[in-house]
Amino acid sequence: MWNLVDKSIVVFRKDFQLEFRTRYALNAIAMFALTTLAVISFSIGPIQLDTNILAPLLWVILFFSAMSGLSHIFVREEEQQTADTLRLVLPPNAIWLGKWLFNVILLFGLEIIIVPVYFAMMNTQVENLSIFFPSLILGSLGLASVSTIIAAIISIASSRGALFAVLAFPIALPILFSAINSTRLSMEGAPFMDSWSDLQVLLSFTIIIITTSLLVFEFVWKR
């Protein structure tokens, strides 16, 4: 078990070094998120939006930002022809876990910037942080998990960009529904127990995706 964790950290560390050097995924996600935020902010002007619109809007931005950059984690290995090298030196599960960890950290890192900017631009605030933070953390974990396994599947296809969003969207739907609903409740100041079922769905779905990914990744990865 610790051997697997150690090796996952080796993969994460390598991907972190590569991203630090090239900033490809970071730039793609940040540019998409900030451009979308600016466009939305300018188009609605001083109008105060309802929480029924604000919550989905936040998750639409987060979902498409994730789609714009997280697939790079596996696509880069195929494009630079380093996938075979990785196949040779590491067990499949360590590769998936390392890359999942990288996507999680990248998404969390960007949310630290995107989410406060979103609330500032939309001139709104969260009324119940005890719902908001679990929703954001679990929703992001789910998005990163879906993105990582779909990225591995599409990395060997020719039209990767289009395929990624098309395949990820239906799988990420339960995450988006629950995350949007619990985020809306947090903006409305609802009591914690009102969001309990959504948080349960988010947690369960994320666990299912991670478990399924670890089970199927070897077949996706090996040729």
């Binding site: 080796v10 560390r13 390598k14 070094q17 090239t22 630079q80 022809q81 090298t85």
Partner: peptide
Amino acid sequence: PYLQLYKDLTAWENLTFFARTRDS
């Protein structure tokens, strides 16, 4: 020839990565 290394990393970073895949 088809086993490529990471061209955006230094030779040392590549080699220590491969070394760590076997032993920390």
